[in-house]
């Protein structure tokens, strides 16, 4: 294999791996946000339903809305960003391809290899830090909950 091709391959690999972790985390955050929003809307509908003086047509509409919301929540909960095949590809390869094609000398190729090595090492460093400090990314809410659990308490829901 040509050295350029080898470098291109390692660049793509490094970028895919690094982006994948970040994008999974981003999607998980987005999902959490959407779930919170849907729960809020469900709560609103439930509150409406609890009212006594509503006519049957509105009641029907509320039930329907509730059903669609429940469905959306179900779908969202089933979606696991880890399984998304799209995350196994670089979104935009043309930039990297241009870089490789414009690389004329060994020095430039070496530079691109340094970039791949940097991206790889940075990702592994992040992974290690996360593995050894599981609390670092935890939300304050989660930390409080776990602290309470430790002494046998539960946070009010």
């Amino acid at each position: 294999m040509k050295p350029e091709l080898q470098t291109y391959k390692s660049l793509i690999k490094a970028f895919v791996r690094a982006d994948r972790t970040a994008r999974i985390a981003q999607r998980a955050a987005e999902r959490k946000q959407q779930l919170a929003l849907l729960t809020y809307r469900r709560m609103n509908i439930a509150r409406e339903q609890a009212k006594k003086d509503i006519d049957p047509s509105t009641r029907m509409k509320l039930i329907k809305d509730m059903a669609t919301l429940n469905k959306r929540v179900e779908i969202l909960k089933q979606k696991a960003p880890e399984n998304d095949k799209k995350l196994l590809f670089v979104q935009d390869t043309s930039f990297l391809r241009d870089q490789i094609l414009s690389a004329q000398d060994d020095r430039h190729i070496q530079h691109l290899e340094d970039i791949a090595a940097f991206v790889d090492n940075q990702r592994e460093y992040d992974e290690l830090i996360e593995r050894y400090n599981p609390g670092a990314r935890m939300s304050q809410e989660e930390k409080v909950k776990r602290t309470a659990n430790k002494v046998g308490f539960q946070m009010p829901s």
């Binding site: 970039i115 090492n121 940075q122 592994e124 460093y125 290690l128």
Partner: peptide, 17 residues
């Protein structure tokens, strides 16, 4: 050791870039 290894390499490569 594992964290240090990655730390040195990422910093040296960042400096190289």
């Amino acid at each position: 050791h594992d964290v240090d290894k990655r730390d040195i390499r990422r910093n040296v490569h960042a400096a190289a870039i």
